[in-house]
Design a protein around this nucleic acid. Sequence first.
DNA 1: TTGTTGACTCCCG
DNA 2: CCGGGAGCCAACA
Length: 116
Amino acid sequence: MSRDHEPRVVTPGFRDRVYAAVRRVPAGRVTTYGDVAAVLGSPRVARHVGWALAALPAGTEVPWHRVINARGTISHRGDLVRAAEQRDRLESEGVDFDPSGRVDLRALRWDWPDLG
DNA sequence: TTGTTGACTCCCG
DNA sequence: CCGGGAGCCAACA
């Protein structure tokens, strides 16, 4: 039987919404997977934000490096090469990292002011 | 169809 | 603060 008839948050156009949301994050600022997911409609689909970014076509202009996890660290899940590139890009934008490789979310977390 | 996986997050200890 | 375990929802085999 039906558990809930609520519409799914992750629709076929989910990836494009993720990209559109991430593009709103300005240089020098960061956001989290959970924040992007919340903006899209559900904080529970944070993993799918990561999935969408993993499926990001090469050449697509999306500041994917500004998306980090809720702890303020870079999620690499084994891909240290991409993680290094992400950190390098962020540092190029002026994002500072702690000795432990952590970003100060309290100061740099984007607040999505354009949501109204 | 079921079971596994994942660029996550929260809760404990 | 950090590591481990559980929960989470779709994609994928």
